[in-house]
Design a protein around this nucleic acid. Structure first.
Ligand code: SF4
Ligand code: SF4
Lengths: 146, 146
DNA sequence: ACAATCCGGACAAACCCGGTCCGGATTGCA
DNA sequence: TGCAATCCGGACCGGGTTTGTCCGGATTGT
């Protein structure tokens, strides 16, 4: 179905929730706010931290904080952070060994332009484009808690 | 990794092999030509036939034949034929029920523009663009671009 | 009648993903 | 200094999807 991983989806909603306020938020806080399970959102934030998209502050009163504004982080970055490099097939970017018919395959290497097109399309959209406006999110959160 | 199914990949190489000659080819023939296992390529051709991308001719001296020239079948069509509808997440096109957090999700429905962008990118490339250019295909492409 | 070929579905194995959990390191606070 | 809060890194397992194979039946040319 050309579906992206569910974790990637969660990462986007977590980021958008984090982008609502500039404050430091803890993982359980974000989990409650987004309605996702706590261990899951923790795992996602962990991955995001490794990729440098968010800063993890340890210790008491710690939490997570955006490393960059949402308008400066592209969807492609999030996908790479969670799922790994964007590669439609096993033979893009000159990779070899992932396909056992690559010796006789007539279209080996011809996926690269398509792959780059997808990459570009994904790099053109930022998380800010997907996230709702901050005040709307705050309002929704307030309603959910009420 | 945003990777498309391996079957889809096989479908493209099978189609490109079929496009080399206008003749009718049997499944074992194509299997030998592409280096893929015979039951696999048979399955792929079966799917392709259901989608109307190739014509299956039964009986002795039967085989498969292209329903359209390769320059008229888009990559998006092949993906849909093998993997099903292109949907990055569970909530595109107003679908509901596939995601258990869609009630509180702040970005529900906001994936649609991205999804459409991918769809368009995939619809812009034809199998003739990926298949090795037999001189006839190259000529046709040159005429189309002129 | 016979052989060749596609058609539809069933099937098990392999693989990947999703979700959970734990122990350790680090920091703020009393 | 002791304690509690919090992130960090990894292991773990169950379930679902994908992959690859197979078989019996339908269809058609010879
Ligand atoms: S070598 Fe051919 S079969 Fe293998 S991944 Fe590349 S295009 Fe697909
Ligand atoms: S409703 Fe939200 S969490 Fe569910 S698939 Fe859509 S964007 Fe992802």
């Amino acid at each position: 179905m050309l579906r992206l991983s569910r974790m990637t989806d969660y990462a986007v909603v977590a980021l958008s929730a984090l982008g609502g306020a500039e404050a430091v938020r803890t993982a359980p806080e974000l989990a409650a706010e987004t309605g996702l399970a706590e261990p899951t959102v923790a795992k996602v934030l962990k991955l995001l931290g490794q990729a440098g998209l968010v800063d993890g502050l340890r210790g008491a009163r710690g939490g997570y904080r955006l490393a960059r504004p949402l308008s400066a982080v592209t969807l492609a970055e999030v996908i790479v952070a969670i799922e790994g490099p964007i590669a439609l097939t096993a033979c893009v970017d000159g990779a070899s060994g992932g396909c056992d018919t690559e010796a006789t395959c007539p279209i080996r290497g011809r996926w690269d332009p398509v792959n780059d097109a997808i990459r570009n399309a994904l790099s053109a959209v930022t998380i800010a484009d997907l996230a709702p406006t901050s005040c709307a999110a705050a309002h929704r959160a307030a309603l959910a808690l009420a």
